[in-house]
């Protein structure tokens, strides 16, 4: 199951889609809107996607991880548009016969999604907004925020 939608996500349905009696472990990751960034209150997130390519890349992530970890199926659902604080923007569900593969594949799936899938996240504050990643490594003409670290944005991975 690969879903890209501007509607609220259903983590239970996404999780159920990968459950099978032959699997003893199910790991589901939820990415949710955090209420702060760098000490500033975040009021909401906004996601924008290049739909056709995003779905293609999500399918590639699923297929390559299924092969790498010997897993039958991985389900991914990503929301677009406005996502308020506490709401879910990403669901990744992995089921496998044993837990180690499920945890690792789920973690790696989120990492890859954040690296290769053309979906962009904008953080909204009371006094403005910024495109995450986009502006971290560029001139700060629309944000005062700057990372001092030397990582490339493509290596930045993790939560929402």
């Amino acid at each position: 199951m690969i879903i890209l939608t501007d509607e609220p996500l259903d983590p239970v349905a996404v999780t159920d889609s990968v459950r099978k009696d032959g699997n003893g472990a199910v790991v589901t990751f939820l990415g949710t809107t955090r209420d702060n960034f760098g000490g500033k209150a975040v009021t909401r997130l906004e996601y924008e996607a290049y739909d056709v390519m995003a779905i293609r890349k999500l399918e590639e992530v699923r297929d390559s991880l299924c092969a790498d970890y010997g897993i039958e199926d991985i389900a991914i659902a990503h929301r677009t548009g406005r996502v308020d604080v506490g709401h879910v923007s990403l669901v990744v569900a992995v089921a496998s016969p044993h837990r180690v593969e499920a945890f690792e594949a789920c973690h790696e799936a989120v990492n890859r999604i954040k690296t290769v899938v053309p979906i962009w996240k904008k953080e909204w504050f009371a006094d403005g907004s910024r495109w995450v990643a986009c502006e971290d490594h560029e001139f700060a003409d629309e944000t005062e925020h700057h990372h001092a670290h030397g990582e490339r944005h493509a290596a930045a991975v993790g939560d929402d």
Partner: peptide, 29 residues
Amino acid sequence: AVNAEYADDDQALNPGDEVCLIPPVSGGR
């Protein structure tokens, strides 16, 4: 991206190709 796939700078273009500029993706940690 050309036709919904990442493209190198030296890739040739053909008429009708769908071309998109892709900002860095959303990140997080």
